[in-house]
Design a protein around this nucleic acid. Structure first.
Lengths: 116, 116
DNA sequence: TTTAATACCTAAAATTTTTAGGTATATCGA
DNA sequence: TCGATATACCTAAAAATTTTAGGTATTAAA
């Protein structure tokens, strides 16, 4: 059960980034990797090889801005949501949650489904 | 909210296939596309361009076997779980559900978390 | 002083999906 | 009866994302 759940489901990484930033005003890359580990009690890890390209893409799309700061002799690149990023964070989170609900329905066909 | 939830989250397609077959002894490709639409009230669709390669891969991995039948003048290729396929279906479903739980935790940080 | 942790990065390869076709038969409506 | 839609299979190029496997540099701990 570890082999797979250890890894991020393809496509969800950008949503994870946006959602974490929605609650925190700013974070730097390494901090994101640690926060995900912390939130999932070490059961989920995001690799830096996936994270950094994802951050750069979100920045290029105008959803994130950056500011670099040197702390303890090491450079940190802080990312924050832009206005557009805030909107996208909301929308993409809703998309992903909707998708997950559908997936639940398929994976757990005996589940109780409350009426609308 | 439709653009994304319309599509299958990368990586979950093979689990969806295995899980559907776990409950149904056999299904053919087209039937799978229809069943997913039905289960999600038309909100989720899997494309044939993704489905058929996925089916062929699972068969090549020894998780599925096939039998072809002609019904109403059209050939249907029925897929069933092998013994290994049954084991994998259980394992991969557990993996995906575990992952989804972690994702919930990240996306919904204010949620109530019951103790173990 | 060497290892681990912090902190950033890239590039090739692998995987999976999207997009965009193709073939063929049956059914339904005009 | 003709054309569109539904059924039913398929492939291949391109795109997107992740994995794997590195690289650099500073600080803290063993």
């Amino acid at each position: 059960m570890n082999a797979n759940s250890q890894q991020v489901l393809k496509g969800s990484l950008s949503v994870i980034i946006l959602k974490l930033l929605e609650q925190r005003e700013r974070m730097y890359g390494y901090e994101i990797t640690q926060k995900v580990k912390e939130l999932t009690a070490g059961e989920m890890a995001i690799t830096e090889g996936a994270l950094y390209p994802a951050l750069h893409k979100l920045e290029a799309e105008g959803l994130l801005t950056t500011e670099t700061e040197v702390v303890d002799g090491r450079a940190r690149k802080y990312y924050s949501l832009t206005k557009t990023g805030q909107t996208e964070a909301t929308g993409r989170t809703a998309d992903l949650l909707a998708f997950m609900q559908h997936l639940q329905t398929i994976l757990n066909p005996n589940a109780f489904k409350p009426a609308l």
